[in-house]
Design a protein around this nucleic acid. Structure first.
Lengths: 374, 374
DNA sequence: CTGAAAGCGCTTACAG
DNA sequence: CTGAAAGCGCTTACAG
C-alpha cells in the first residue's frame, strides 16, 4: 500500500532530473512490490546452467549443445524473459539504438523513410532514434559526432542530403558506428550504400515527354548542392540526347526543391518566347509550384504545357491537375537500409539487395499530354 | 596498427547480432588504441573526490559544497566528460529515452510533432525513440506495453488518437513511465495533458462563414472515433447556433480524415438541392477532397461554394484555390509536451503551460468568399 | 561445450 | 557535506 506514494504524481527520486536523493532525505525505503521482470540469473537458475550459457543462447552462439539450448529456450519462453537492452548495451559498450540523421525538407519523405527503417528493424533488438539536423550549420559535424559518441549508437542511416557529406563516414568509423548511406549514386563501398539511381527515373520522364511529341523542353533542377539534383538532371538530359534533343543550359533553371522556388523558376520559363511545351521539375513540390505559375500566366495544363514531377508523394494527387511524376519507393528503401545495417555485422556480411526492386518508375497522371501543335 | 582490422568492414564481435565470440575463437586480444572517453572515475580521481560526489554534481544534488562543485565542474569541463547514458540507465533502472507513440495518418503532423518534441528535449539528457503503431490492431495494447516495459522508457508522448485510448495510462503507470497526452479536450489530470481546444478553432471557422453571409452550411467531420472530430463538430455547431443557424445532422457527414473520404462526402453534399454554400471540412486533407469534387461537379470555389479546412498543413497552400483553414501550432504543442514531460519529475512538478499560446487560429485564403446571392 | 570471476559506468543504500 | 561498498543485468576474458 505504499505503492501509490511511489507511483503517484510526484515520483520523487525516480529520475536524475529531480535532484532529490530520497533515502538520504526521507530515510524510509519504499520499494514497489510490482512483479519483477525475470533476469538472466533467474533463467540460469531455472535451467540449471550458468548465466554465461544463457547469454550464449541469447546471442545465438553456436557453441551450445542442442539439448542445453532447448532447455534454456523453454525457460525463456515460459517466463517471458527478454534481456534488458540497457544492461546489454553497457556490457557491449554499444547501445541497441539505430539513429536516423536527417536534414530533409519533405515531411512525407521523412515519415516514409522512418516507417521503412522500422519495417526493417522489426524483430530486431534495436530501437529507432531520430535526429534531425541542419547541414548548413557550422556545428553540424560536431553535433553528429556528439550524438553518435554519447549514445554509442549501434549504427546510423543517412538519407540524402546528409548521406552526401563525406566528413561523416570517418567520424562514424572512429566511433565504431555502422552506417548506411542512401544516395542517388554510389558514394562509398557497396555494402554501406543503398543507391536510388535517380538518373533512371529522370530518363523515364524524358522518354515520356519525347513520346508525347515534346521538343521544347525545360528542366527546373533541385539545389545543385544535392547530389540528386545532378543525377536527375543528368539522367534527363542524357535520355533526351539519346533521341537527338539537346537540353541547353539556358533551359535548365536551378530551384531549391521548394514550392516557392518552383513558382519563381516557372515564371521565368513561361515568360519566354517561344515558351517550353514541357517542364520537368526536380521534385513534386516544385512541380506544384509550376502549376501555380502556369495558372497565373493563363497557361493551361496539359493543353499548353506538360509538367512532370519527381517523388510521387501525396501532394502529387492533391494538386490540380494531378501530377505525372516519378515514383520512388521510399519506405522500401528504408526497409532495405535497416536490413543491411543490421546484417552488416558478423558473417552475414556482404549481403546485397536487389537494386532493380527499388528503381524509380514513371506514373502518368493528368499534368502531361501531347505537345501542342505549333 | 591492428586498428584497421578491428575497425574494418567485418567488425566481428562488435555486436550481439554476429554470434562470434572473438577471443574464444581467435585468441588474440585486439583493443583499439583510440582515446578512451573519460569516465566518472577519471573525474573523481582528477578532482580528488569520490565518484559518488561526482555523481551528485551530475545529478544536480544540492548536497555538495559550493567549492567542491566548482572544482568538479572545472574538471568535467576540461575533460569534456559526459556521463554514459547507458550506464546511468542501468543504475537508474530507467532509460534516458522518451517515446513518441503515434498512429496518425498525416505525415506533416508526425514530423511537426517530432520536431517540437525535440525542441523541448534540447539540452536534456533524453533521446527520442519513435514508435508508430496501429490502434486498430488487437495487439495494440500489448505492443505498447512491451515497448515501454522492455525499453524502460523514461516517458512517452501520446498524440491523438493514441492519446484517447484509456487503456494506456494504467499500463504506463504500472511501468512507472511518465506520459503526456495531447488531445482536443482534457481526458486526464492537467499535468499529464496538453489540450488543443479544437472547438475554439472550429468556432472561428463558423464565425468566418457566418460573417461572409453563409447560412446553408455543411460539415464533413472526421471519424467519430477520434475525439477531435467530436470537438470540431461541437465547436462549429455551437458557434453557428450562437448566431441562430442550426447545423442539422443531415448537414453533417462523417468522413475519415482522408482525401478520398473528402471527395466522397462532398459528392453527396454537392448533389443536393439546394446545395450548401459552404462546407467546413474536419481537416485539410478532406478539404482538398472537397475541391476535387467541386471541380468535377462544375461548382466554382469560392464563387459558388466556400470551403474551410483544419490544420493549416503545407497542402493548404498547394491546392487550388489555397485553403482558408484553421492553423494549429503542432510543433509548439510538441515542445510544450516534451517540456512538461521532462519537468514532471522532482519539485518542478505542477508547472503549467500557457494554453492561450497554442490556441488554433483562423487563416483566410482564397477558398472562402461571400455567400452567393440566391 | 560450459562456467567462475571480473567488469561495463554509473547509482543506491547506508554510514558517517 | 562526503565516501566505501554493493549492485543494476548483462558480456568479456579466461580457463577448463
Amino acid at each position: 500500500m505504499t505503492q501509490d506514494v511511489v507511483r503517484g504524481a510526484s515520483r520523487a527520486g525516480r529520475s536524475p532530473a529531480g535532484w532529490t536523493e530520497p533515502t538520504e532525505d526521507h530515510g524510509a525505503q519504499r520499494v514497489s512490490e510490482r512483479a519483477r521482470r525475470p533476469t538472466i540469473n533467474d533463467i540460469a537458475r531455472l535451467a540449471r546452467v550458468s548465466k554465461k550459457t544463457v547469454s550464449r543462447v541469447i546471442n545465438r552462439s553456436p557453441l551450445v549443445r542442442e539439448d542445453t539450448r532447448e532447455r534454456i529456450n523453454a525457460v525463456i519462453e515460459e517466463t517471458g524473459f527478454v534481456p534488458d537492452p540497457t544492461a546489454r548495451g553497457l556490457a557491449f559498450r554499444r547501445a541497441f539504438l539505430i539513429g536516423m540523421i536527417y536534414d530533409n525538407p519533405t515531411p512525407q519523405y521523412v515519415v516514409n523513410m522512418q516507417q521503412g527503417l522500422l519495417d526493417g528493424m522489426r524483430d530486431s533488438d534495436y530501437e529507432l532514434v531520430v535526429h534531425p539536423c541542419n547541414r548548413a550549420s557550422p556545428d553540424f559535424v560536431t553535433d553528429v559526432r556528439n550524438f553518435v559518441e554519447r549514445q554509442k549508437l549501434f549504427g546510423v542511416v543517412l538519407p540524402p542530403s546528409v548521406s552526401e557529406d563525406d566528413r561523416l563516414p570517418p567520424i562514424l568509423r572512429e566511433n565504431d558506428c555502422a552506417y548506411i548511406r542512401i544516395a542517388s549514386v554510389a558514394l562509398d563501398e557497396p555494402d554501406v550504400m543503398v543507391v536510388t539511381n535517380d538518373h533512371v527515373g529522370a530518363a523515364a520522364a524524358a522518354r515520356h515527354l519525347l513520346a508525347l511529341g515534346h521538343r521544347r523542353i525545360a528542366h527546373i533542377s533541385g539545389l545543385m548542392t544535392f547530389r540528386s539534383a545532378h543525377e536527375r538532371r543528368r539522367g534527363f538530359s542524357e535520355a533526351l540526347a539519346a533521341q537527338g534533343v539537346k537540353l541547353t543550359s539556358k533551359n535548365v533553371l536551378e530551384g531549391a526543391y521548394t514550392f516557392e522556388s518552383g513558382i519563381e523558376c516557372a515564371k521565368v520559363l513561361l515568360a519566354r518566347s517561344p515558351r517550353p511545351t514541357a517542364i520537368f521539375a526536380g521534385n513534386d513540390e516544385m512541380a506544384a509550384g509550376v502549376l501555380v505559375a502556369a495558372r497565373q500566366a493563363g497557361v493551361s495544363i496539359p493543353h499548353d504545357l506538360s509538367v512532370v514531377g519527381y517523388d510521387d508523394f501525396q501532394i502529387a494527387e492533391r494538386v490540380w491537375p494531378p501530377l505525372t511524376t516519378i515514383h520512388t519507393p521510399t519506405r522500401e528503401i528504408g526497409r532495405i537500409a535497416a536490413d543491411q545495417l543490421i546484417r552488416s555485422t558478423g558473417d552475414a556480411h556482404g549481403i546485397r539487395y536487389d537494386s532493380q526492386a527499388i528503381l524509380p518508375t514513371l506514373v502518368v497522371r493528368e499534368s502531361s499530354g501531347p505537345a501542342p501543335a505549333e
